[in-house]
Write a protein that binds this DNA or RNA. Structure first.
Length: 425
RNA sequence: GGAGAGUUGUCAGAGUGGUCGAUCGUGCGGCACUCGAAAUGCCGUGUCCCGCAAGGGACCCAGGGUUCGAAUCCCUGACUCUCCGCCA
């Protein structure tokens, strides 16, 4: 959520920033009028309430003096009804204003390139060259089926398309990747491990920006009005909702493994094979809370922590800075890490590292106090995948495949796997 | 799932219709005393909104209701605790 004061003071600047995303003004133009109306109605209501407060204090005094209060009380009754009416009007304007604000995306950071789609993203770094093979490499879905470690057909029997069953060393590989990532981030990068609920309420989903706009992308559990989390970002960021964090505690670093659930509603026909786009996938997430002045340095170190995973696993990747048109709703700046996927013949997103500045903090009401004397301020929140586990698994299968159909296990995973190779039985 | 109790400021814990934003204690900040500290004493200590300001409004789990007036009464919901049931 954008700061209403900022919209008031720099409407043109905010408008320009929001429109740089390329999808209109997201209803921003409704805000000034709603804001003005809210303040006008608020002033009226408060004036009436002031009269009510002052006059109703007279009643016990009059009663004590033995005077008749019937006339005054009748008058007050009338006022009370007017207040109720005006209050309804105020509540309506406030709801309208809040809804308008909740549907406006974050303003892109100044260095975000202007662009329409992922074609306009800017490559800022590259690690290793794309893997070369002296044989015809296979796609991970074929490798997985040939080695009997991935079973898409039986998964379809259980849950339909976009689900996978991992089997044997496949299941073990997925679990090894999760443990490797968590161990790396907790022991080398200073993150505290969190194991959160996988279902959350509406407030949490609104706090990080998934609601109200993207309800259709989420799996909903009607029995309790819960949502299956689309990313650990939701429970982990909202862990600190409605808190005032002691300034000395910042920055706070959390990491969490969770499954993620997404409808993938708008992506029919895309990535229908393999592990790339699933309704349920595993992810290790990194979340940070920090002081505003530190957030861009924290984004750099967050990105570095995520990159470290692929560097240690020795898998080729590149980093791109997303352009305005590709930037997520809540984000002010995002770097995507894209891993080399031989079956696609291109780089595929495996992590998205974003600085949300105060956008989520304002929605979820996450503040901090620099010292005991200072007023609370909103923190900046950041998060990034560290990394998507299923895609990492796919990248390992494809980049580490051998001519004989086996797959070598990256050195760093061998202690977790107990074997150095997956081969056909 | 059934029955009961509870949810108040950093914490602990009063308050059952009218100067209650809220007693007392504790914590925290400041001052005094002290060589320094402890102990003690004094003062100050929530958040949000509107307003240039003066000031005003709101918040005692959340949302409704009753009333001239609600932390206090009523209804609904969430959560916590105890007992029973069920269960990994």
């Amino acid at each position: 959520m954008l700061d209403i004061k900022r919209i008031r003071e720099d409407y043109e600047g905010v408008k320009k920033a929001v429109e740089s995303r390329g999808h209109g003004d997201f209803g921003l133009s409704l805000v000034p009028e709603l804001d003005a109306k809210r303040r006008a109605v608020l002033a009226e209501v408060e004036a009436m309430k002031n009269k009510q407060n002052v006059d109703s204090k007279e009643i016990p005094k009059l009663k004590k003096a033995g005077e008749d209060t019937a006339a005054l009380m009748a008058e007050m009754k009338e006022l009370s009804e007017k207040i109720k009416e005006k209050n309804g009007e105020l509540a309506q304007v406030e709801t309208d204003l809040r809804n308008a604000l909740l549907n406006i995306p974050n303003t892109p950071y100044e260095i975000v390139p202007i662009g329409e789609s992922d074609a306009d993203n800017l490559e800022v770094k590259k690690f290793m060259e794309p893997t070369q093979f002296d044989f015809e490499p296979k796609a991970h879905w074929d490798i997985g089926q040939d080695l009997d470690i991935l079973d898409f057909e039986r998964a379809a029997k259980l849950s339909g398309t976009r689900f996978t069953v991992y089997k044997g060393l496949g299941a073990r590989l997925e679990r090894s990747i999760i443990n490797f990532m968590l161990d790396l981030h907790t022991s080398k990068h200073g993150f505290t491990e969190i194991l959160p609920p996988f279902m959350v309420n509406r407030d949490a989903m609104t706090g990080t920006g998934q609601l109200p706009k993207f309800e259709d992308d989420m799996f909903h559990v009607p029995a309790k009005d819960f949502f299956l989390i689309p990313t650990a970002e939701v429970p982990v960021t909202n862990l600190r909702a409605n808190e005032i964090i002691d300034g000395d505690e910042l920055p706070v670093y959390y990491t969490a493994y969770t499954p993620c659930f997404r409808k993938e509603a708008g992506s029919a026909g895309r990535d229908t094979r393999g592990l790339i786009r699933q309704h349920q996938f595993n992810k290790v997430e990194l979340v940070k809370f920090c002081k505003p002045e530190d957030s861009y340095a924290e984004l750099d170190s967050l990105l570095a922590a995520a990159e470290a995973v692929l560097q240690i696993l020795e898998i080729p990747y590149r980093v791109v800075r997303l352009c305005t048109g590709d930037l997520g709703f809540s984000s002010a700046e995002t770097y995507d890490i894209e891993v080399w996927m031989p079956s696609y013949g291109r780089y595929v997103e495996i992590s998205s590292c974003s600085n949300f500045e105060s956008f989520q903090a304002r929605r979820a009401n996450i503040r901090f106090r620099r010292s005991a004397k200072d007023k609370p301020e909103f923190v900046h929140t950041l998060n990034g995948s560290g990394l998507a586990v299923g895609r990492t698994c796919a990248a390992i299968l494809e980049n580490y495949q051998q001519a004989d159909g086996s797959v070598l296990i990256p050195e760093a995973l061998r202690p977790y796997m107990g074997v150095d190779k997956i081969e056909k039985k």
